[in-house]
């Protein structure tokens, strides 16, 4: 059942309706997608946090992965958030040199 607002709330601008009377649409952000390479493991994580905290929370040692968002590298103090797609690419090689 749709709630109706009293005249005082509409007058104070507290209505969720737009001036034309339509209801605004809000997009619920998707959780962050984190891919671990070369394992190919995919994780879903919600909430804004610093890169350093994200890496530590996954039990990964600092300096052993590149943190990649799109075509940019992120430093430990950068923030990542919902809707981001992050790649954590291991830098340790045991084969190719």
């Amino acid at each position: 059942m749709q709630r109706t607002l009293g005249p005082d709330r509409i007058a104070r601008g507290l209505s969720r309706r737009k001036p034309d009377g339509s209801v605004p649409r809000f997009r619920v952000p998707a959780p962050m997608q984190v891919r671990l390479e070369p394992q190919g493991k995919q994780l879903t994580i919600s909430g804004r946090r610093r890169v350093g905290d994200l890496v530590r929370s996954l039990g990964i040692l600092a300096g052993t992965v590149l943190v990649i968002r799109g075509d940019e590298l992120l430093t430990d103090d950068a923030f990542v958030d919902d809707d981001d797609t992050i790649e954590l690419r291991a830098v340790i090689s045991g084969g190719a040199g």
């Binding site: 070369p38 690419r89 090689s93 045991g94 084969g95 190719a96």
Partner: peptide, 13 residues
């Protein structure tokens, strides 16, 4: 990016 498949468990790692 992949590691050599023979390197799993290698002492160097």
């Amino acid at each position: 990016v992949e590691e050599c498949p023979n390197s799993a468990g290698a002492t160097q790692l």
